[in-house]
Amino acid sequence: MMHGLRKWGMMTSVISEISALVGHVLSGGYTVQITVNVNGTAQTSDVEPRQLLVHYVRETLGLTGTNVGCDTSSCGACTLHVNGQSTKSCTMLAVQADGQSVTTIEGIAKGDELHPMQKAFMENHGLQCGYCTPGMVMAAIGILDENPKPTEDEVRVALEGNLCRCTGYHNIVKSILACANG
């Protein structure tokens, strides 16, 4: 048994089996109706109780700007706002968002006019491949909401939950500071 537990895939397989059992019971037509205010519009959907918020946003609502970058809640690519708070949407169930207000990356620009943070990222080359970017921008807005004039160190510490593999963070930090001072 000890040997078995050390094996790769053991954990995922245990989780899958539990998920299969639970899913079998809960997905057999069992759904819950939720109403979430998403980007200013009330959305009512029937969702499986086990559905994560990130999957609700991406699959049920088709808002695919929110990305999935890991399976351990480490990377922050799925960061969005729940009632104005930065939240990794892989750490919440869709049903927990019932009655709440969610803002995704699709909801912050006004038509063709980018949000100041989006504009700052563009002007400071704060993105390369762009995969972490939606989560990064949502986290960055959250950082300035809490601390409108942060120091560089404060930005770096506050960004700890969002990983980027392209930029080395130099221009991300620069973008956020530019937005704060803009």
């Binding site: 999935v68 995704t104 990356i105 970017t133 939606p134």
Partner: peptide, 17 residues
């Protein structure tokens, strides 16, 4: 400035998934 950035920054860009 990069042309692809507005689509990436607004979540409009389409990755494989």
């Amino acid at each position: 400035l990069r042309r692809e950035d507005p689509a990436l920054l607004t979540g409009w860009a389409k990755f494989l998934a």
